[in-house]
């Protein structure tokens, strides 16, 4: 929709051109959320496309995903064969409520900074132990694990004007085996729960990532694949009944119920 309060588009060649940050500024990445709701507090959009960041950079250390990388680019990515977790990219992208047409515009960074419980790129990058690089308006860049970046429904650690520059997925995580389950109240709809676990080939470092059913991503890490009882105990300890996210895409009680169910399915699949 038209953002009728926006009076200026800035298309900087470098971030130095921006000057001091104002609350009425907003970074424009894909625009797929910004343009989907009125943004009456915003009068200036700062176009990140003009910065020309390389979408994807694969190195032996892992994969660097620019915040402005389009979902379609990540969907098309083919990693080296030892990165066994790359198919999870597509599994998570398919979990989006939004269509393939949106993938052409929406960015990975945009989905993460929206910080919604059902943000499928949060699920993906959290499960693969991603680390964000953040560029504050002043001072040196800092890094924050994705699982800590999102702090609640539509909340994260970004300071005013601070920019998510990229997400690094470490090669160690990309090399793990994984299993995933997703549930939605409607067919291919918005996630009520999106649960992923990864594990090393030798059954070590089992990492369960709970998303969508909780306000923020939750990690539960085990040295080895846990037993069903251990897993259930760990989940209940970490997530009491009021730790789940209630919205029109699923009641909290339901989300708790399916989280436990899918977590056990995943555990059994990887065991």
């Amino acid at each position: 929709m038209n953002l009728n309060t926006v009076t200026k588009i800035r298309r900087p060649g470098s971030l130095d051109e921006i000057g001091s940050w104002r609350p009425s500024y907003a970074w424009l990445a894909g625009g797929t959320w910004l343009f989907s709701e009125p943004q009456i507090a915003t009068d200036t959009l700062i176009d990140l496309d003009s910065l020309g960041w390389t979408p994807l950079t694969a190195t032996p250390d892992g994969l660097e995903i620019a915040a402005t990388c389009r979902v379609a680019d990540l969907h098309a990515f083919k990693g080296p064969p030892e990165w066994k977790a790359v198919p999870l990219f597509r599994d998570c992208i398919d979990a989006f409520l939004m269509s393939f047409k949106i993938w052409n515009a929406a960015t990975i960074g945009g989905n993460i900074v929206m910080s919604l419980p059902a943000g499928a790129m949060i699920s993906l990058t959290a499960a693969l132990e991603g680390v964000c690089t953040l560029w504050p308006r002043d001072g040196a860049p800092r890094t924050v694990p994705i699982v800590d970046f999102v702090t609640g429904n539509h909340r994260n650690v970004l300071q005013p004007g601070e920019l998510l520059r990229s997400i690094h997925l470490p090669a160690t995580a990309l090399a793990k085996r994984y299993a995933m389950r997703q549930m939605s109240l409607t067919r291919l709809g918005q996630s009520a729960a999106l649960i992923v676990a990864t594990v090393d080939d030798d059954g070590r470092d089992f990492l369960l990532t709970i998303t969508a059913s909780t306000p923020r991503p939750i990690h539960l890490r085990f040295e080895r694949i846990p037993t069903a009882a251990e897993l259930r105990h760990a989940i209940d300890e970490r997530l009491p009944a009021d730790g789940y996210f209630q919205d029109v895409h699923g009641s909290a009680a339901y989300k708790q119920h399916v989280t436990a169910y899918f977590a056990e399915q995943i555990r059994a699949e990887l065991a």
Partner: peptide, 27 residues
């Protein structure tokens, strides 16, 4: 819907489909 949900506004830009309600016109 004007919010990217219904697809009635789908157009192509350089041959790729987009929901035009979500595309900043200047792009």
């Amino acid at each position: 819907c004007d919010a990217g949900d219904c697809g009635a506004c789908t157009v192509w830009i350089d041959g790729k489909p987009f929901h035009s309600c979500l595309v900043p016109a200047f792009r």
